[in-house]
Design a protein around this nucleic acid. Structure first.
Lengths: 341, 341
DNA sequence: TTGTAGGCGTTATCAC
DNA sequence: GTGATAACGCCTACAA
């Protein structure tokens, strides 16, 4: 199957097929320009030699890597995993491969990973959120790598974004709760440090309340890492510190599940005593007890749209675009009017 | 920052730093052999030029890509996402990058992706499960790419495996239920077609029951795709067809959550009327009502161990190894003795 | 510690 | 439709 020394090369295929190397190259890159006879000979030779293309050589010479990088905070939240899956699938249909890194919400780590991706020759990098180190964005610009941010929108002539308005989405949650008659609010937010999404959600929720005459000082906000246990602990704390609360907005369904659990532990009825709204619309949220009212995030679509943008934008071409996707309220069983007090 | 034509090259850095290109190369690959003075000059030059290494050229010449590929069925099940995260994190600490693909449980798709990964120059490929196309394993062997399979164990001198004994794990579930006094069993399995893990779990569960004097014919097995809704539908079907069942083993926690939901819908008490055991130990499983008894799968560790093996095994070196991780039973609230009948 | 020479496998370019 | 030539940017090998 193979030459005694190492793998077969394009040249070996050409020799066996009785043509020039460049013809074999065309066989792969522009098959229309190779006659049927030669094609067959090349196919035979490839089979006999067990030939695999050497992408490193191709990339070095052609400057087209067909490689994309993505840096996400973590794969352990399904919204990011979903986005990456959408991205990878769609890219694959266009012959692109995806290199993936997790930054653990650390922007310096993100920078280091972006640098490595550039060195690997990626044509585009997908990031999460609008907040990044200045040097990261500069690096991307200098090296002419297409950059797409997701999960948020960015008004920028250098960077494309595919996402949704976190501020607006949180405001939507507030409006739904206000419309039900709630006046005493709390929020369990994600860690806002270096996280524009978590931050925008707090601001959006607070702003909408302010507009309805509820000053920010009356909103009790507690931050928690995105896991169920932390959500539960945050809820416990909120209930202790702001016992009159009738509505809680959570920055993630994961937090909401924890909040729900704490309510149950304390014998508080949801939604009769307390209304809860989550964020993400995870698969599980339909199956909590009661089913969780939440905001639906189009995670897979974000990945797909980012892929579409990358595939359409040639390397070096700067055509930053803003693709806004919609977040919808999904009313389920954890929201109702507050008890008459 | 950059030369007018394209990116700066190693040669440009060398010229500006006043040394030979090979010294700059050593600066990156073997810094100990470069004097401090020269190092500083090189660092300056790199900064001034905004130089990024060209990995394609490095790989082409050195044959060391420091690239690993992984093909998983889907990222949308957290066990796979967890494994990939463990893999990526651990690899990153050794300077390896990870290219990732989803096959959607399609072995031909997996083959195509593995081929592309080989062409990209990966030094190793991580796959899920022991069942693959013959040609896929041959291809890996021929191209001298290290192969590691996960989520299962494989006795093979060509392929390393990092995983657990699915047959044994399922038998463990059976033993726990038998010990509680159950005699009427059912199982909601994953789709077994081309899926050795799902298949081994059915066989292991069935074999353990047989050993306890319960013939396979009395075990009612229903297959379902791994999602909550399908699990619920499968449970509905089981309850209709085998109404005397007192214990159900699910091939995944996702299926178990669906099963639990169906029991609740029908007014069946868990575990009083029916015991349920899941598989995976997802984060959510601790928070179902009642909390789900399940088998803990060391997903992150699998990824980390696979990475360790890859990092330790040089390219081309064949030292297939079997790393067996343990699956433990996690008793929670969905298992109890059956009612006296 | 540093330098010189040559080639890794492919494709761009120009020619027929 | 096909081919000859050179070059992509770096590292290995050997030498000083």
């Amino acid at each position: 199957m193979r030459k005694s020394e190492g793998r077969a090369r394009l040249t070996d295929v050409a020799r066996l097929a009785g043509c020039a190397p460049v013809t074999v190259s065309r066989f792969f890159n522009d098959p229309g320009r190779v006659s049927e006879d030669v094609k067959r000979a090349i196919e035979d030779a490839i089979g006999q030699l067990g030939y695999y293309r050497n992408e490193s050589a191709r990339v070095l010479r052609s400057k087209r890597s067909k490689l994309v990088g993505v840096v996400i905070p973590t794969l352990r939240h399904s919204i990011y995993a979903d986005m990456v899956e959408g991205l990878q699938r769609k890219l694959a249909t266009h012959g692109f491969s995806l290199i993936h890194n997790v930054s653990d919400y650390d922007l310096d780590e993100e920078h280091a990973q972006a640098r490595n991706l550039i060195e690997r020759g990626v044509e585009a990098i997908v990031l999460v959120g609008t907040r990044h180190r200045r040097k990261t964005l500069d690096m991307l610009k200098d090296s002419a790598v297409t950059c797409v941010v997701t999960y948020a929108l960015r008004d920028d002539f250098q960077v494309a974004s595919v996402g949704f308005d976190n501020h607006r989405a949180a405001a939507l949650a507030a409006e739904k709760l206000l419309a039900l008659g709630h006046r005493r609010f709390a929020m369990i937010a994600g860690i806002t440090h270096d996280n524009d999404r978590a931050q925008s959600r707090v601001e959006g929720f607070s702003a909408a309340l302010a507009q309805a005459g509820i000053p920010p000082a009356e909103l009790c906000v507690r931050e928690a890492r995105y896991d169920i246990r932390e959500g539960q602990a945050a809820m416990a704390d909120l209930l202790d510190r702001a016992p009159g609360t009738t509505a809680v907005f959570c920055g993630s369904d994961v937090l909401a599940v924890g909040a729900l659990r704490e309510c149950r532990n304390r014998g508080l009825a949801v939604p009769a005593d307390i209304s809860i709204i989550g964020f993400d619309n995870l698969e599980i949220s339909e199956y909590t007890d009661p089913p969780l009212s939440t905001l639906n995030v189009p995670a897979v679509e974000m990945g797909e749209e980012a892929a579409n943008y990358i595939v359409q934008t040639g390397p070096g071409e700067a055509a930053p675009k803003k693709v806004e996707l919609q977040v919808g309220f999904v009313p389920r069983g954890t929201t109702a009017a507050p008890r008459q007090s």
